[in-house]
Design a protein around this nucleic acid. Structure first.
Lengths: 346, 346
DNA sequence: TACAGAACTGTGACCGGTCACAGGATCCTG
DNA sequence: CAGGATCCTGTGACCGGTCACAGTTCTGTA
């Protein structure tokens, strides 16, 4: 009956039936709009009868909250930026960005928040992204970048925008971030290859200005100890073709290589391309290990032995952290564990 | 001087200096907030002097518009959904989704709108996405799906949500969409292979419930004419491993194959994996052609001959179309041209 | 000179929530 | 039984824009 009343009111009062508001719900439930609002925000100080009436009214009217009105009143946008400061190339070529994106989308959906994707590859884009974020269109930023120091990061922090990074920001800023034990993971993989009897283990490192590039090299070097040989190290750019090229150079310089550890799965796959062209069998002639467990590792043939990063945990932790920071609770950096996944190539 | 007044007012009235509003700007410029608002929305009926004063005031106060307030007043959210109705796997494995995402992000940034990424792979996700969109959190939807009929699509259309699809929605609904001439493009590639002297041309088709799967097969069949042979057709799932598997089956059934046309670059690369394992040289023994020009095609070694889809044009056209629909201007479907890109494999 | 209409401007209602505040009811406690 | 605490509720101001409307000035034309 109240439902009918509301329906006819809507139909008669406007040709386009307006979406029900909190006041419509209140009228149907026979309470005030304040009570409805309270129920919507946790339901404290609402009597059981009122709760029941309001819940019924919400169901019968098909009420959904108006996001813009809530934002205006609370000063919160209800969204986070997933900020990628990479050239577009990398987004396409390395599946780990998609993994992080997916994880963050899920973690936010659980909290009824949304993800705004921002890509800042060029300088013009960086500027517009900065304006956008500083204007308060998002409550916080998930900064995803493989490169360690970033002018954008500094300016976001200076502007007081709650920000969390993936990977280690190696600048001196103390930004909350979630990372893995890069050095330890690289040591573990190197030790695994050594334990399998390999002695001439090459490394295809990442770029020097990325934590993954520097620290995985450090771990490899530490574990190799006396066996460390500069000629066994090449640098790639995290792209497949760079893995291929690096492997080709390594084979020329050191044909006696019996294993190769690549700082990413994508480069490992590129290395396998080169090894195949050179007629080396994997893993019989040369063992290959990757890093990331990026999905590619499992579907590649043969499946890659790799160091798994807990992607969905990384993204959900980042979301948790930035939400805490938004609430005013400062957060420390978090280091998550990695797992060596032994498949066919090493 | 007026600026100083505003600044001190802000500082004294609140410990946290509030962000300047349209009324602050108006006070500094010595006009009413209505005039500021008019300038912000196109600047019609604003005198040159007022315009100048307001622009100076905006610059001196550092004013940026409050998105939530504008949304509330206009009933527009200023954002579009990029809705992906695919299992997560495909987003990771096929670069074309990243290409579309990137293009849409750019096209929207130009219009100061934002992109909300929604992924509806599971049924639970579909439901929450539907609630979200119907609640009016976005002004329109860019539906990206390779599969042709989609319950979600039907319900969005029923709810009157402005929606544009990529690819052909083969249901009976007349949804605006942007597509390519699938049949014509497939004919063109097949003709190219025939012209190069190949006679036993295999096809690795896409899934039957996708336009790309059905229509590219149709074009291939039409162009092959009398040479069409059912045993030369295999179906894949657009994944690399499925291209590999399909090629393996084809080689068993028809060892005399001298060319293969894959309905996506990713599957073409998978096919090359299989051909290499079988000891066939590409393109010397078997020519390979892909479809999409997904970025993978260029970086693969050897670089893939493929049919280029105009990705950035596709995404910007989709954005244009959905914005038109939002404005109340119905749009027809658009068919964009493809280009045969000859590289090393065919 | 009068007057229509264009160009410009200010005012205030409104969008749909949140939240502070002022009560009212009920219950416990001294 | 007074009086305070606790629980619950309604009221209305407020967030920062947009937009309809009314009013003013200015120009051009009869």
């Amino acid at each position: 009956m109240p439902l009918g009343a509301v329906e006819s009111a809507l139909v008669t009062s406007a040709e386009t039936p307006r979406k029900p508001t909190i006041r419509d719900v209140a009228r149907v439930a026979g309470v005030s709009h304040g009570t409805v609002s309270r129920l919507l925000n946790g339901g404290h100080w609402v009597s059981p009868e009122a709760r029941e009436a309001v819940e019924a009214a919400i169901a019968s009217t098909g009420y959904t909250a108006n996001h813009a009105a809530r934002s205006l009143a609370t000063g919160r946008s209800g969204s986070l930026a997933f900020l990628l400061t990479e050239s577009q190339q990398l987004l396409f070529s390395d599946p780990i960005f998609a993994l992080l994106l997916r994880g963050a989308t899920e973690a936010l959906a659980e909290r009824s928040m949304t993800l705004v994707l921002l890509i800042a590859g060029t300088d013009a884009e960086r500027e517009s992204v900065e304006r956008y974020v500083r204007a308060g269109h998002v409550d916080g930023v998930l900064l995803v970048s493989s490169h360690e120091s970033d002018a954008l990061l500094a300016s976001l922090v200076a502007a007081g925008v709650p920000t969390v990074c993936s990977g280690l920001p190696l600048s001196d800023l103390a930004i909350p971030h979630v990372a893995i034990d890069e050095v330890g993971a690289a040591r573990e993989m190197t030790a695994h290859l050594l334990a399998a009897g390999h002695r001439r283990i090459a490394l295809i490192a990442g770029p020097n200005d990325t934590p993954g590039g520097r620290l995985r090299l450090e771990g490899y070097r530490a574990e190799m100890g006396d066996r460390f040989d500069e000629t066994l190290v090449e640098q790639g750019s995290y792209k497949r073709s760079s893995g291929d090229a690096a492997m080709t150079r390594l084979l020329e310089r050191a044909p006696d290589i019996d294993a190769v550890f690549a700082a990413s799965d994508v480069m490992a796959v590129g290395a396998i391309d080169a090894l195949r062209r050179a007629g080396r069998r994997v893993p019989d002639d040369v063992a290959v290990a990757g890093f990331d467990d990026s999905g590619l590792a499992e579907t590649h043939s043969p499946p890659l032995t790799t160091m798994r990063q807990p992607w969905s945990q990384i993204s959900s932790t980042m979301v948790d952290m930035v939400l805490d920071v938004i609430e005013g609770h400062p957060r420390e950096a978090v280091v998550l564990p990695t797992t060596l996944v032994e498949r066919a190539t090493a």
